[in-house]
Nucleic acid binder design. Structure first.
Lengths: 202, 202, 202, 202
DNA sequence: AATGAATGAGATTTCATTCAT
DNA sequence: CATGAATGAAATCTCATTCAT
């Protein structure tokens, strides 16, 4: 029994190690410029080992995405659990987002930059986790409409993208260091205020 | 005299043809999956010809970006020329943006998807044209603050990114066809109203 | 233990195989006209394998040169080991030279013809092994002067080149088959006699 | 009439210009690394123009060689014209050789380095001019034998190569600047003395 | 005769993936 | 399970040569 557990841990830990290495390497070099061997070296395994855990390089990126997205979705679920006011929910959503960005900037970079890149990921690959993520926002917006906080005429499909895009871009530029003119805390406040104001029923 | 003109046109037209072909091909296959030979065939020239006009594949992408960005910046300048009310300016900006997207969807796809991908473009390559573009938004926001329309406490560096991100994401998803639930006209209206409301001084 | 040895042998044997193949192919086609794929085929490996052992085509030529030069220098050292008379040493040097030429005519051709060609080898690439080689001759000449056999006024720096050039050219033309009018044995005798006579103190 | 002459001069001067440019460029970069366009630029003509005067790049090198060799052969003929003593002839030959080297070091470099390079030139291309050149030496040696100055047993075919190689190598190293330890004048003296001593009948 | 833009065959080199150990 | 040497398809880029002007 404990052996199985050990082995499971080993197994997991090797798969994990590869994903963590991939996050680092993809963040630094970009997916297309990163070599499988770079990831292998960073993970402390042989090239071939990666193919024991992942079908190919694309599959590694997909698995990385799904794994990390699970974690992110859990974090949002946890953060929003005990909040009932849609306005507070929206503010919390933004806050959790920036907290995640700050916690793991390399992961953030992969999400912000690399996942945008390939047709594979934004077009061909049907991205349920990303839809789940957008639906958190949609849920909050719909709730706000239902409860009379937000304009009832809001087109949720557009608004959810708008909110996501706004947060995402501010985060991306912070990550890229193009703007060290603002802190994530400032950004969080500014975005919350402006977005909420934009949605409020008059 | 007319010969010089002719030749100029010829010359330009070959460079132009390559760039137009690159837009098509990059939009369809993505930058990294597009072969130089694909671009050459699409442009009706030989592989080598591309290297007479561009240093290498990266350089082609950079030139494509700069050329097209010039056009875009001109379009914004023209569109905003005779408008003085900052609120109207913002609405017009959004409208012009979506008009451009609609006019050339392939170009839009390259800008919205492919240009996000390479470290070259978002990090290494210092991107003056993109800054110019963001500064159009910043200018409108600052004007609105000065003239008392918008909250004077707005942090322009954050707000400009927020606005850009919001518009950009809505446009991207429309391009990618993930959402055929809305028209660009609807999106334009919805964004204008929401963003302006978010910025207004109470 | 024997496994390590085996592996070493294997490893060496692949690097070796590539170098031997390169000698054959460069001799036949010339360095610039030889394709990497020609070498790969001759060595019975894939193109890519060559790049596991050598940085690029130039590096292969350099390594070939250094490896073979080591062997050649050893042969000279061995041949001259037990000889003390400078005149005998000179004769032996010439004899060993022609023996090496005869033993491996393809290698000789690469050394005599191909290595002369690229700026890399005669100018840019700093060529310690070749200097070592010339210094064998210089050593013999100096010894001969010191011991009163050779004219004490000989300018060793010139004489060593003269001797090398004389031997080298006779060998080259024999290799190129331009002159099948003489055997290497004849050439060896003729050169020995003439050079020694030229150096002798009167 | 005078127009034809003019044109002839023009014609010659363009062909000449290309050859002179080729000497410069080949000397600097080596034949294989020199681009036709490099030669064209150096000659102040268009790429295509070179093909009006020469069949291809190889043909340019061959023509360069033949032209220059004619000049060289003439110089030797002139220098040796009024000398009858074979020993003096040999000394003069060496002296003329070094004078030519000194007069045009770039040409020398092409002859010394580049012409050695391609199978085309030392094997395939049947090189009458080079044989003519070697035969000047052979003629002197034979004369010396006939007149009793040199050992009658000398194998002229070997000796001519030996003499050529000795002179050539000393010249080459001087060109390459590897040895700035000696002047060409010194070299000339040293070689003359040593070679003549080596050949003398005892 | 001269030009030089255009060609396109072909060479080097890379790197994801495999498989014998 | 793990390795990493070997593979070889495929991509970028070069450059001698052509040919319409």
């Amino acid at each position: 029994m404990y052996i199985d557990k050990e082995e499971m841990k080993q197994k997991n830990s090797k798969r994990e190690a590869i994903i963590e290495a991939a996050v680092k390497v993809f963040a630094k070099k970009g997916f297309y410029n990163a070599k499988v061997n770079d990831v292998a070296k960073a993970a402390g395994v042989a090239d071939g080992t990666i193919y024991l855990y992942f079908k190919n390089k694309d599959d590694l990126l997909i698995n990385l995405f799904e794994d990390k997205m699970d974690h992110i979705l859990n974090r949002f679920a946890a953060g929003l659990q005990n909040i009932h006011d849609p306005i507070e929910k929206l503010k919390t959503f933004i806050h959790v987002y920036f907290t995640l960005i700050e916690e793991d900037q390399q992961l953030a970079e992969v999400f912000q930059v690399e996942l945008r890149q390939s047709a594979k990921f934004l077009k061909d690959y049907h991205n349920q986790k990303f839809l789940d993520y957008l639906n958190i926002i949609a849920g909050i917006v719909d709730e706000g409409k239902r409860e009379g906080f937000f304009r009832p005429t809001l087109h949720t499909d557009i608004i959810k993208l708008m909110i996501f895009g706004a947060i995402d871009e501010v985060a991306r530029q912070w990550i890229l260091g193009a703007d060290d003119k603002y802190s994530l805390e400032q950004a969080s406040q500014e975005l919350s205020r402006t977005i909420v104001d934009g949605l409020l029923a008059s």
